[in-house]
Nucleic acid binder design. Sequence first.
RNA 1: GGAGACGUGGCAGAGUGGUCGAAUGCGCUAGUUUCGAAAACUAGUAUGUGGGAAACCGCAUCGGAGGUUCGAAUCCUCCCGUCUCCGCCA
Length: 422
Amino acid sequence: MLDIHFIRENAELIKAGAAKKKIEVDIDRLIAVDDERRLIRQELDTKRAEQNRRSNEIQVLKDAEREKVIEQMQHLKAGMAEAEERLKEVMVEWQKLMLTVPNIPDMSVPDGESDADNLEVKRWGEQTKFDFEPKDHVELMTALDMADFERGAKVAGFRGYFLKGDGVLLANAVWQLALKHFGGKGMTLMSVPSLVRREAFMGTGYLPQGEEDLYKTQDGEYLAGTGEVATMGYYMNETLDAEKFPLKFLSFSPCFRREAGAHGKDVRGLIRVHEFFKWEQVVLCKAEHDESVKMHEWLNRNTEEFIELLNIPYHTVANCGGDLGLGQVKKYDIELWVPAEKTYREISSASYFHDFQTRRLNIRYRDTEGNMRFPHSLNSTAIPTPRILVSIIENYQQADGTIKVPEALVPYVGKTVLGGAR
RNA sequence: GGAGACGUGGCAGAGUGGUCGAAUGCGCUAGUUUCGAAAACUAGUAUGUGGGAAACCGCAUCGGAGGUUCGAAUCCUCCCGUCUCCGCCA
């Protein structure tokens, strides 16, 4: 959510930003509704002032005089009720419109419609070459009994999967290494809820517009698609101590995604699944653009470093306007080389939001001048499993169908090769 | 799942229909005092919003939403949360 004052003063800027993001929003209507809101508020304030004044008079009045004033007050009250009713209606539309106003993308965000228009800003490593015909991870993992997709679908339905044996070992090794790598950067480790109430989804910007992408329980909670939701909700409605900024978290959680509207996409394997696990980096910092930019680069670099530890070829893209979410100012995706598809696939997403989320979540702090401010928030994937396994397994496959264990993972896997002779 | 108690400012804690945005204490900030500090004393110390150059003034907020009343922190309803006991489960 943006500040209504800011919206009023920068209507054209916001319209241009929305256009860049390919998001439809009616700013003119919002301003008209806000005009109305202000008028009714002023009218009500005046009436309430009179009510307060006269209520105080009533205390000291006696008998007939008192009865007379009380009767007059009843008329005033009727007028107020009418104005309150109008305000209520206006506020319903006002709230609804406010939630649709997107954050303004950064100048450096490339123009474009979809992920196809994202701009490569970095490329690391050589695309893996094989002197044999490389297999895809489904074939490799199934052959080595590291995963079972058929029974996954039988038990869990479409996109269901079981990890087994060395598959579990490898996933666990990735978590261990992630804990060591990211945990060594001063982040507070957290294990966060996935079953989360509506407020935190509204606050982070996943609701109200993303209802169809979320699983919902019969008790009204939703299953989070990322640990970001609970981690950001952690400080909801609180005033933070700026001395401790930047607050840095490394959150682990199961993640659930309905993938509504993606039915034809990535129907095989571990690229797109309904449930997975993710380590997520979350940052709250001072409300300064430069600070956000600095933290954004840091978060993204942390993940790049991790991929470099695994020695997997990747590139980093700056997401184009059309590929940005409602609240995002700028986003980098890190994409890993997937040999079977001969393309890079997204593994990580690092975004910053300025105060878009904290304003919705009502997370504040007091700056050095003593003013209440909404801090800036950022988040970035640290590492998701099992998707990361796709790139590890396909890039590290050997001619005999076994998988070489990336050096950095060997201590955690406990062997150097998966499958075949040990 | 059953029964009960409770939710007030940064914290503790008063307040059960009127002058209460809220006593008191602690904390915090500034000043006096001091060579300096402590102590003591004095003053200040919530947030949002509208108006105003400012001083300041209006309105709203006592877990959240609604209701009763001329008037609600206080009464009523629902929701959320915390605690205690019982039951159930791990």
